[in-house]
Design a binder for these strands. Structure first.
Lengths: 120, 120
DNA sequence: CCGTATCCTCAGAGATACTG
DNA sequence: CAGTATCTCTGAGGATACGG
């Protein structure tokens, strides 16, 4: 059985989750959306608790699912950039709503433990 | 380390994912949105590959995160219903976009293997 | 700097049985 | 019917090293 079934519940939302689900994908897509284009190491630094292996694995999956584009400058030392492609860009409305919902619904926690400014 | 960090990347989208992330939550929220109110067994039947334990665990988490409401009719045999509460309803725009994106972007696969009608 | 391969661990998910 | 507890075990994910 495939872990993130494309058809679970005969529901089109399952397909969306099958390409963008999991712990990291939405987050990475959002980072790429906000920064337009990012290098591998830049992404890594922006996601403190992702591991090397995880990041390259997830980037590879996103590429296979045709959501991002990989630009290899074929130089030494290597320089590789990632950006959303057209299909990836079509997810932006979802990303923006998710971010907006997060901002609005964290209010309670912010009131508890103080400063959580400068969130993107 | 908490698995779905609320703050990963200092990004408000992380909070959204911390309450609605994972393999099942968006899907369950979507089912509740479409059907307004569902019994436990009804949900179970609608999600073929979720296990008994998983479903009750996830429902419990959604309840703890104040996204759904549990109505116990306190009768024998038991009858329990679930529905989105107000906070849960505020996720509907996201759910609708996800479903829409899924419908539109599955086209390629549909063209390959034929009939995929009647998807919600 | 970027990416992959290998090994290994442990937490998450399944199976099953039990209770109200 | 709805939910919990226990036990087991698999495989996702971490650490590490190597390679282009």
């Amino acid at each position: 059985m495939k872990k993130w079934s494309v058809d679970e519940g005969n529901c089109s939302i399952s397909y969306t989750l099958s390409v963008a689900g999991g712990r990291w994908k939405w987050l990475i897509l959002y980072k790429l959306f906000k920064n337009k284009v990012m290098r591998y190491g830049e992404l890594k630094r922006n996601l403190p608790s992702i591991t090397h292996k995880m990041l390259s694995q997830v980037l590879s999956e996103l590429r296979n699912d045709e959501l991002i584009e990989r630009i290899d400058y074929a130089q030494v030392p290597p320089k590789v950039e990632y950006r959303l492609n057209e299909r990836g860009n079509s997810l932006i409305p979802i990303l923006e709503l998710m971010a907006q919902w997060g901002r609005e619904n964290r209010l309670s926690e912010i009131l508890e433990n103080g400063s959580n400014d400068n969130l993107v």
